[in-house]
Design a binder for these strands. Structure first.
Length: 504
RNA sequence: GGUUUCCUAGCUCAAUGGUAGAGCAGUUGACUCUUAAUCAAUUGGUUCAGGGUUCGAGUCCCUGGGGAACCA
């Protein structure tokens, strides 16, 4: 660099721009260059044949993440989708001029492609002896610190790409999420479920109780809401004769943002004709067991030092409680009413008056709003005192019918519905129902729930039901929450690539 | 929405109300098997923004912005 009056050697952005300008002046523009890798890093390393150094040629490409120059020879690492691979540059291999370019023009964060042969270093690391290299993108900004990585949560979320470049755990966690979604698809397709896509823009936000985002279509001059659930359109597909369908899609809820809530989140919903909530129980258990065993693949180590043995496990540590969730053990099944009776110690709880229930809720140390309905008072106990304690996989069955208008009424107890909620880690992970297919009962339930707000009833869905929907089991899984559990994450933001934040 | 708390160099962090520092990264040099490489030298600050108190504010107070935890 030429002598300048002001020393800007501290300004890494300026230094890197200077290097880029020098390269361009010398006739090379990295932004116009490219390479064709033959392998990803781990695949390349797997090609090495023990004892046969410099036999296997490879071309790999990635981001420069460590840089160790020792005079005429240097070890660096690049990182691609599969992880890091070490490269060895020597002056006597590359020649004085290219080696000089390597030493002076490259910076941490640059993206380069290299060709060479595989060999094993003294310390046993499979490495590429570089014979040729090409810079294919210049990083004009420096990487975060190499040892501590990036830890400012705000920057982690706003500049997730930096987090993913430097924080190994984040790379692994978010890749596991991607693999979970992919494995869910394969699992369902193997069982003849069809993946369909239904509208995000809807005129009525049905299938759940939540405040929707509102928007407007200009050409149609029509207001729309973003969907809060996939349910009602997937059931139309059951009417259509698609007997096994699922959708993995984004839902939007215009509500609070927290460790467990992002305004947009990913939901899986599955519907299977001629099944019911019991069938869904088997399906979801098989699915989650498969995900733990074949995707997350937890291991446990017994003993220490030389005697240590690592073997596959079905247990995953729950970040919030520190407890180990055992997916391999028997999954508990319990009725909602039994849990409430156990918690309140009152076998007659469900025949108490509203006043008695208010008193009962308060006696448990909870706030009880006199405006609440009776089922809301009871559900306060469930939500605050029971659900958070259900860490091991638990099917809570037969919820009060007021909690969901879309399920079939239990034959021998008309106050409950044929449903379960799968609770794991104190969180609702998967609700499932025997789906209501009686159009008249469905209409009555909608009307009871909507009250004055009759415009919130999806009449087009009711029309579809009148054409006949087969009996069916349906299930939903919050993919984000599932990813939290399976990756041992603490927050939904840790399993969403770009969680929602305020504009900076 | 409420309470608590955080915001200092590119990054990770220091600094009783009294001259804003360190490590990494950067720059210059040495070094042909390194693993957070090493060694020597060295640059770098509108302390989130704006007000206030004070002889003096990164530090105390107020307002605003953004993040986090808990609550609703």
């Amino acid at each position: 660099m030429s002598d300048t009056v002001t020393d800007n050697s501290h300004d890494q952005h300026a230094v890197r721009r200077g290097k880029l300008a020098d390269m361009r002046a010398g006739g090379f523009d990295p932004f116009r260059a490219n390479v064709t890798p033959t392998h990803f890093s781990a695949d390349a390393k797997a090609l090495y044949v023990e004892g046969q150094d410099d036999v296997v040629p490879v071309t790999v490409a990635g981001r420069l993440i460590t840089f160790r120059v020792q005079g005429g020879s240097s070890f660096v690492k690049i990182q691609d989708q599969q992880g890091p691979i070490q490269l060895y540059f020597r002056k006597d291999v590359l020649g004085e001029e290219r080696y000089g370019v390597f030493k002076k023009a490259l910076d941490l964060g640059d993206i380069l492609g290299v060709s060479g042969t595989l060999f094993k270093t003294k310390t046993g690391e499979i490495t590429v002896r570089v014979t040729e290299f090409t810079l294919v993108s210049k990083a004009l900004r420096p990487l975060p610190e190499k040892w501590h990585g990036l830890s400012d949560p705000e920057q982690v979320y706003r500049q997730r790409y930096l987090d993913l470049i430097v924080n190994q755990e984040s790379r692994h966690r978010l890749m596991t999420r991607a693999r979970i979604v992919s494995a869910v698809r394969r699992f369902l397709e193997d069982r003849q479920f069809l993946e369909v896509e239904t509208p995000v823009l809807q005129s009525v936000a049905g299938g759940a109780a939540a405040r929707p985002f509102q928007t407007h279509h200009n050409a149609l001059n029509t207001d729309f809401v973003l969907r809060i659930s996939l349910e009602l359109y997937l059931k139309r597909m059951l009417v259509a004769g698609y007997d096994r369908v699922f959708e993995i899609g984004r839902n939007f809820r215009n509500e609070g943002v927290s460790r467990r809530h992002n305004p947009e989140f990913t939901m899986l919903e599955v519907y299977q004709a001629y099944s019911d909530y019991r069938g869904m129980m088997t399906l979801v258990k098989d699915l989650l067991t498969h995900l733990v065993r074949d995707v997350v693949k937890p291991t446990e180590t017994e003993g220490e030092g030389e005697a240590a043995v690592t073997r596959p496990s079905m247990r995953i540590k729950h970040a919030a409680s520190g407890e180990w969730i055992d997916f391999g053990a028997e999954w508990r099944e319990v009725k909602y009413k039994d849990l409430i009776i156990e918690k309140t110690g009152d076998a007659q709880w469900f025949s108490r008056t509203k006043e008695e229930k208010i008193e009962g809720v308060q006696k448990l140390g909870l706030y009880a709003d006199p405006k609440w309905e009776e089922f809301e008072l009871t559900n306060e106990i469930f939500g605050k005192l029971i659900e958070p304690t259900l860490i091991q996989p638990t099917f809570v069955t037969h919820l009060p019918k007021e909690l969901c208008p879309l399920a079939k009424i239990t034959v021998d107890d008309p106050s409950t519905i044929d449903v379960f909620e799968l609770i794991i880690g104190g969180m609702e992970v998967a609700p499932a129902y025997s789906e209501q297919n009686d159009p008249d009962v469905q209409r009555a339930m909608f009307e009871a729930q909507a009250g004055e707000e009759t415009q919130k009833i999806d009449h087009d869905f009711l029309l579809a039901l009148e054409h006949g929907m087969p009996p069916a089991g349906g299930m939903g899984i919050g993919i984000d929450r599932l990813a939290i559990l399976l990756t041992g994450a603490e927050s939904i933001r840790d399993v969403i690539l770009f969680p929602q934040l305020r504009n900076a």
